[in-house]
Design a protein around this nucleic acid. Structure first.
Lengths: 133, 133
DNA sequence: CTTGACCTTCCAGACGCTGGAAGCTTTAAA
DNA sequence: TTTAAAGCTTCCAGCGTCTGGAAGGTCAAG
């Protein structure tokens, strides 16, 4: 199939699919006219990439997952630990974002938000009398 | 003060400070020897940038915050709404990450994680019998 | 035969730095 | 005084992950 069809079934834009070829993730055959020719297996791999990318795996992690997927003798534990590690990273990010939210929330609560020129938020950013954090 | 000192008091690496000059955020004077010469005000602005970047504001948002900071007649409401908008973005990101976490958590729970070659996580990524999402 | 959709390649840009090379100046120690 | 180290300069390139655009080839429909 052409790249347009591959894009349709994988849910990835053609530009992204070409990029994935460039970095060696999914390298299709070529038709006589020079067009990329994706097999069904290629289509599966692209869909696999779309799904794992959307779950927050990096390109290199996806490469690893793909090679585990290709390896018929791999242990499922390898995959599980990669996923667990990803969960830990996500939790860490959430914790950081919650911290930011709290700090910004404090700032916003302290700001009267009217037309007066003094503003506790800017005062805090400038390092005056820190509210917190 | 030289860039090293400015780095020290702002908490930003020299490379970053040079970059901020390049994009016009903080442009210092120059000494006779060609070295950057940061005033105390420059130092404050760098610290301001360090703090607002660490709170998740983008460079362009920081530029806006700095100009609000410079403008003695600005309304604090402008700043407040920018901060509130940032909070909304953060909440949105947290919600997305929680969704990812749930999905990955389901996958991990379903995976036996031993040495057997079949793996529900890879099966899901490949699009077989979706567990959720 | 023409139009328009689709395909190709290549180059550049987005964000926000970060690293390194090559070559200054200044400072401190031997 | 010489020398070595630290700090400064500029310029160029790269990180990750695409995304946009230009210039041009190919194909299917009317």
């Amino acid at each position: 199939m052409n790249i347009g069809k591959a894009a349709e079934i994988s849910g990835l834009p053609p530009k992204t699919i070409r990029y994935y070829e460039e970095i060696g993730l999914v390298v299709p055959d070529r038709s006589e006219n020079g067009y990329r020719d994706y097999s069904d297996v290629d289509g599966h791999r692209l869909k696999f990439l779309q799904r794992s990318r959307s779950l927050g795996f990096s390109i290199e992690e996806c490469r690893m997952l793909l090679s585990l997927y290709d390896d018929k003798h791999r242990a499922s534990g390898d995959v599980k630990s990669l996923a667990q590690q990803k969960i830990d990273e996500i939790e860490e990010k959430i914790a950081q974002l919650n911290g930011l939210k709290t700090t910004l929330g404090n700032l916003v609560r302290c700001c009267h938000g009217d037309h007066r020129p003094d503003c506790p938020i800017l005062d805090d950013l400038a390092g005056k009398e820190p509210l917190n954090s």
